[in-house]
């Protein structure tokens, strides 16, 4: 069957099998390998992309279902050659270690900040509760998203420049 959808603002048409999952369509047919493919069972969330503006797990959406709709992937975060504040937050605050969960985390974070520009830590944790970081780096992921929120709001202060410092409770901050 033929499917046409908009991916990161560009219309694409491909011949696919009805059973093809959106994650494989993006990776194998469009070579957009920024979207990662993990557990296959809608548990890990590394495959999160936007479907009509909402983050979804693309391993559990058929590519055919996205026909006529708009998809945004991690490749679409960057705008006019500028990284999204969420991407910069992940760089600044060490939001990734191995990087496997990062694309999904960032897509969820972008959607969260669009709906709620100043989320609490609890709200951030709830938003990413369907996603797994196999490095268990959740604290820095939360911090990265908070950095992005402050950056967007123009309220970022040097006190919120935590990225490379050790948490103050450790007592070993240099």
């Amino acid at each position: 069957m033929q499917v046409t959808m908009t991916v990161n603002g560009e219309e694409v048409t491909r011949d696919i099998e009805g059973r093809l999952l959106l994650v494989h369509f993006l990776r194998d047919h469009l070579q957009l390998t920024g979207t990662h493919w993990g557990c296959d069972t809608s548990n890990c969330g590394t495959c999160v992309v936007w479907l009509d503006g909402e983050p979804v797990k693309s391993c559990t959406v058929l590519a055919a279902m996205a026909g006529g709709h708009e998809v945004r992937t991690v490749e679409g975060l960057e705008q006019n050659g500028e990284l999204d504040p969420v991407q910069r937050g992940f760089i600044e605050c060490h939001g990734l270690q191995c990087g496997f969960c990062t694309p999904g985390m960032m897509m969820t974070a972008r959607a969260l900040l669009d709906a709620n520009p100043d989320p609490s830590d609890e709200e951030i944790r709830e938003a990413i509760s369907g996603q797994i970081c196999r490095c268990t780096g959740y604290a820095t992921i939360v911090r990265s998203i908070r950095w992005a929120a402050a950056e967007q709001a123009g309220t970022r202060t040097t006190a919120e420049e935590p990225g490379r410092t050790v948490a103050s409770t450790s007592g070993s901050a240099s």
């Binding site: 969330g45 979804v56 509760s129």
Partner: peptide, 9 residues
């Protein structure tokens, strides 16, 4: 129920 991403669908 599940998680926020699944609840979107």
């Amino acid at each position: 129920i599940a998680d926020p991403l699944v609840r979107n669908r």
